[in-house]
Design a protein around this nucleic acid. Structure first.
Lengths: 196, 196
DNA sequence: CATAAGTAAATGAATATTCACTTATATTTG
DNA sequence: CAAATATAAGTGAATATTCATTTACTTATG
């Protein structure tokens, strides 16, 4: 029996991520992907049942990996500031080390594959972060508030900065690169917002 | 000379916004649009040079209108809190009154038409809001910081809440509707973050 | 040498765009 | 004032291309 070429399989994933990250699902097609990889379309149909399967597999796999990266060194029993710092750091490091994947996620988040992605991504996370939020509210470190209000204040600024950084530009096309200084500046503001 | 049917033209715009808002650019096509409007494809090629022209015209026009809505009753000489409140209110009201357009924008923001949109959107706004930021820093109401850090803390939470609301769900598919209470709760947190 | 990996070429459906044509109406002309 | 004309609006059917997927075949290797 002939063994599957792992390099080829990885090339497919990497290339798909790049095409989608750059041009969105609008400009992605199976034929383009095969051509960009220098392989036959039919090979893709050995790896994946169909286009839907390819994309949702990719979204699920990457979602899971990202979820794991988010949980690294995170302790739901830690204090509000220490816990939030770890979450910000995990996202920041992941973004720097996986720029093309971050761009891919940006597309997934506004697509029909969002659900697949969130399922893999949010399953464990929701429990761990939910627990963290319960703890810090119970300890009186932050006020009680709807999850969405907390999330929007605690993380939306970080994701906005990451998006600017990945696209290389901010408002009105102004060139932009996120620095550690800006990162911590934003973090401190968010802590100030939420801390009692 | 025959006059162009304005109703038809508006129907085209409205329908395009709906299709894209619902399914993204991925599921949008000229033929589908024509069929949904009950007109001939060829008519669309009278209104617009090609697909690209149709979409970037739409993004530009709506960007401009939204920009105008953002500036309503906004005074760059006002205090930090009053100014930010007006900006939040303008965005909030616009979202409520233009839900399908808000969904359309959500798609534009991760597409290749983002640039067109931002250009129309940010041209005037940048000056007015830049002036506002200069004023409040000069008056010592907030600390000096990069525009992107300010923007990410001041507005990203609001956009996150609006996105949840437009999609009708938040993290992990949890049903969600933004209330006035949550809106003001988030606003107060953001003010607390930025105020000296 | 059996078996799965891998392929080139083909399929029909969907896509963007164009074509040759008809229709409505503002303006001109008798 | 009404018939004629010009012109852009509007059309249905055709085109060429791209799409997702399949088929019939070759190749590599346990």
């Amino acid at each position: 029996m002939r063994a599957r070429d792992i390099d080829k399989e990885n090339l497919v994933k990497k290339t798909a991520i790049e095409i989608i990250g750059k041009g969105g699902f609008e400009h992605f097609s199976i034929n383009k992907l095969a051509k960009a990889c220098g392989i036959s379309v039919a090979t893709l149909y050995i790896y994946y049942k169909d286009k839907e399967d390819l994309l949702s597999s990719l979204a699920t796999e990457l979602g899971r990996k990202m979820g794991d990266a988010m949980l690294k060194d995170f302790d739901p029993e830690s204090s509000f500031e220490a816990g939030l710092r770890q979450q910000w750091l995990n996202r920041y490091h992941y973004m720097i080390e996986n720029q093309s994947i971050s761009l891919f996620f940006e597309q997934v988040r506004t697509s029909s594959y969002q659900e697949q992605f969130l399922k893999a991504f949010a399953e464990d996370l929701k429990n761990v972060f939910g627990k963290f939020m319960d703890n810090i509210v119970a300890r009186g470190e932050i006020n009680a508030m709807p999850l969405e209000v907390y999330w929007s204040v605690a993380f939306a600024p970080l994701y906005a900065l990451i998006k600017f950084n990945n696209e290389g530009q901010s408002l009105g096309g102004k060139p932009f690169k996120l620095t550690d200084e800006m990162f911590w500046q934003a973090f401190d503001l968010v802590v100030k917002a939420l801390k009692r």
